[in-house]
Design a protein around this nucleic acid. Structure first.
Lengths: 192, 192
DNA sequence: ATTTAGCTTGAACAAACGTTCAAGTCCAGT
DNA sequence: ACTGGACTTGAACGTTTGTTCAAGCTAAAT
């Protein structure tokens, strides 16, 4: 039975996102992808090579999602806020939140797999750049002070999202997170 | 050769902090602790049981460190700021920063080891409570608005630290992080 | 229909992993 | 000095893991 490469990659992304790199075993993948070992290796190379492709896939999906939010929103800041909220409240529920795959990878592969670590950092930088782009748009729309440093804002938002998704694992009150998101975005208009 | 239990636990903490739970193999521990398998199992029970003790050890060390900062600082907010800075800039260097062991554990054991996950969350809650305690002190010292919600501030600071340590892995400019820390603490005095 | 190249299957491999347990060592009590 | 209990050692165990490769399958070309 011939498999669909893109579909397999998406399914692998789901699984690695759920279990992390080390926690995902080849036998898990075989089951989740409904593929046998030789096929996985023929199609993707190795566990590590597959994971690098998964990271790329994840980043691309994230950038596409941000663009979608930007298309639907009234303005870029609202898009960013919707993106963050959608990331935390999956299907409206706090308990569905999953730690960002890139963050998970950075943390997990800090010392053990330099290649994965570096690749995840690159992914994070791309997403941060997308944030900065949207802040630039917002600035042109006079939604932000003309003197605000949009790069700094991009970094700040990235850092906040990182904190939010981890913190969400230790939080049962949706209200707490909602307040934090409100606070983050309400203070963005004031340059530091 | 008789080993020192507390010293072994501290060394195990170092190693698990560096490599994470799954990344740390028993053979790593044997080497790092200079102990043989049977001794480790006799003294600590199992890899998992040892790790739970390590989490406790890490939390205790963190609480003690916050108390030390509080003793040396002019006031509680300075103590918290020094704690954060000391956590990020280890020996004054950004590149020495390590992801908090509790955060690492929460991320890594999200789906695979519920017991470790829950234990790490408990540890995070204890540290957050310490933050809230210091915010209470600061409020009594009139350093914070009397109407500020110190619990919310404790949660906020915890979330920010989580974001900061992860973000630091993707940041080579010490100035970026310093600015963020300044911003976090300068906006604490204004109730949300 | 036959052939062939490309792909898929899955048993099996070597290495890695957490753990056990018999033998040896140490030390305190008599 | 001797004894016995507690502890340490480390070989070995059974299981898990990433990967390979021979056999089989499929589909397109002749």
């Amino acid at each position: 039975m011939k498999y669909d490469h893109a579909q397999a990659l998406n399914k692998a992304t789901e699984l690695f996102w759920q279990k992390g790199y080390q926690g995902t075993k080849m036998r898990d993948l075989q089951e989740h992808l409904d593929m046998r070992p030789g096929s996985i290796y023929a199609g993707f190379g190795s566990k590590e090579a597959l994971f690098l492709q998964v990271l790329d896939c994840y980043v691309e999906q994230s950038l596409i999602k941000i663009d979608e939010y930007n298309r639907l929103a009234t303005h870029p800041l609202e898009a960013l806020k919707d993106f963050v909220s959608g990331f935390i409240f999956v299907e409206g529920k706090l308990e569905n939140c999953k730690v960002c795959l890139l963050v998970k990878t950075v943390s997990e592969s800090e010392t053990s797999q330099p290649k994965l670590h570096a690749h995840a950092l690159l992914g994070l930088q791309k997403i941060e750049q997308k944030f900065t782009d949207l802040f630039n748009q917002a600035q042109q729309l006079k939604l932000l002070s003309q003197t605000a440093n949009t790069e700094q804002l991009g970094k700040w938002l990235q850092m906040q999202i990182m904190g939010l998704v981890i913190y969400s694992k230790n939080c049962t009150q949706q209200q707490d997170i909602t307040l934090m998101i409100e606070h983050i975005f309400s203070t963005l208009r004031q340059p530091s």
